[in-house]
């Protein structure tokens, strides 16, 4: 049942991503609408899958790479839907859905068995820490997608290629605004995730900070976004440079999430 819900959600995201791609190339209002609604259906199924797993495992279902990637995808879908219904940008889905789908696909390919949680991780910190972390990461992901849209549109405006996709992308000001909002949402969440992580570490392992790779990379990510906000507010960097930095930040996010787990040894690899 839980697997089935998960697979259905994955299928919805896949269909939405494909329709989004078609929309990107061909351009059609119906395709944009379809993307949103299929995503919404996928999101509901996905929510049900997560709840089902929570009930059957009896623990917060963010304890393995499979569960984490799935929850990451869920957070992106949530923020995408909120952004869509706030700003009504049809083509946004074409840029975000592939990211949701890829995250979900990564989750689908990772081992799914429910492992008993090691005593060190059994704590209410788990829920608080991971929710902050993944919502923050999801906000950065949306900022990345919107940043790409900004860079494209800015390129079209500068080089005066005013046809095709240019006509379907929204104005650069609104893209800059969403990018900024997502970073101002993601940054405090990441900050809280790091703080709660430190408190939890003190609780579980007896020290706040141990320069574990995950901790280090989170900090690097945190510094990148701190810089984005700082130069925006103090120097007035906006637009293209802010968008480029949010792309860089997203690379750090990906490495913090995937790279550390697969390439480096960390206490965060759920073992």
């Amino acid at each position: 049942m839980g697997t089935l819900l998960f697979e259905f959600a994955l299928t919805c995201y896949f269909a939405a991503a494909i329709i989004g791609m078609v929309d990107l190339i061909r351009g059609s209002k119906d395709a944009s609408k379809l993307t949103v609604w299929i995503t919404a259906v996928g999101f509901i199924l996905h929510t049900a899958a997560i709840i089902y797993r929570y009930l059957s495992a009896g623990q917060v279902p963010i304890t393995s790479m499979h569960e984490s990637a799935s929850f990451f995808a869920w957070c992106i879908a949530l923020l995408y839907l909120v952004t869509h219904f706030r700003y009504r940008i049809g083509i946004l889905g074409s840029f975000i859905l592939p990211l949701i789908f890829l995250m979900m696909l990564a989750s689908a390919m990772l081992p799914r068995e429910i492992k008993p949680l090691s005593p060190a991780l059994q704590s209410s910190w788990l829920l608080i820490h991971t929710v902050f972390a993944f919502l923050g990461f999801a906000a950065f992901t949306v900022a990345f997608g919107v940043g790409i849209m900004y860079l494209l549109q800015e390129h079209y405006l500068k080089t005066k290629k005013l046809s095709g996709l240019f006509l379907r992308l929204p104005n650069i000001q609104v893209l800059d605004e969403i990018n900024y909002r997502m970073i101002t949402l993601g940054f405090p969440l990441l900050t809280l995730a790091i703080i709660t992580g430190a408190l939890w570490a003190e609780d579980a392992w007896g020290s706040y900070w141990r320069w574990d790779p995950k901790e280090t990379w989170s900090l690097i990510t945190w510094f990148i976004y701190a810089m984005v906000l700082h130069i925006r507010l103090v120097v007035g960097w906006r637009g293209k440079r802010a968008a480029l930095l949010s792309v860089l930040g997203f690379v750090a996010v990906l490495f913090t999430f995937f790279g550390v787990n697969f390439l480096l040894k960390s206490v965060h690899i759920f073992e």
Partner: peptide, 20 residues
């Protein structure tokens, strides 16, 4: 009927792609 076919309209359309 989409997309401006006069210079002054084209200017307005462009402005709308830059500003909200």
């Amino acid at each position: 009927a989409e997309n401006a076919v006069s210079i002054s309209f084209a200017a307005v359309e462009l402005a709308k792609k830059i500003f909200t």
